[in-house]
Amino acid sequence: MGYQFDWSLVLTGEYRDWLLDGFVLTLKISALAGVCALALGTLVAVMRLSRVKPLEWLSLAFTEFFRNTPLLVQIFFWYFGSEAFLPKAVNVWLYKQDFEFAAGTIALTVYSSAFIAEELRSGVFSIPKNQLEASRATGLNFLQAYRYVILPQAFRIVIPPLISQLLNLLKNSSLVMTIGVMELTYQARQVESFTFHGFEAFTVATLLYLAVSLSVSFAITMYNKHFLHQLRY
């Protein structure tokens, strides 16, 4: 093995700061895209459940298309291609902002929202039909039945898969390095190419990703153990 480990290189000084900055940006872009994706995903799911045919089709086309094409291609599409189809004013505004960050956020939002919409839809679908019937039979109207009986159950079922979708988003955010967003993976690459000590840099980056993923999936397991057993029909 001709490789000399030098951990102090990435655990102190400038290179450590690069990695930490990257980690913060990873969390930032994931959080921002996560919030937007939850909102957009809910909208798409509601359209799908609306019983209004054109809205249903639109929602179906949206989820099918964005789930079945690679995120990386979508990122390039928004980054290189946005000029062609976004209104000029929006593009001008976007360029004045941090354009890489904006394109990355849009791509992550749209991609994740398609998955989130599917989780929400199947969560609502998994509530047995007779729950709606039983609540309507006691005189609750449609909205009340959803508000007090269907959605509270759907919500409990859907929380764990939604959180794992947000975790996927966090991991997927590594792809925006390709358009120059300086998040964790980008910075690890940077350190690698400046110092040739990629092993250390990538170890730190991997451990940071793992720390978040593992603690969240542990929390999901606990949640499933303690809260989900109630929902037996």
């Binding site: 729950q131 039983a134 005189g139 409990r156 109630q230």
Partner: peptide
């Protein structure tokens, strides 16, 4: 109308939550 007529199903259909 439904509020004035109670119904009991074969599969209890209680709200599990």
């Amino acid at each position: 109308l439904r509020a004035e007529i109670g119904i009991v199903f074969q599969q209890f259909n209680l709200y599990p939550h």
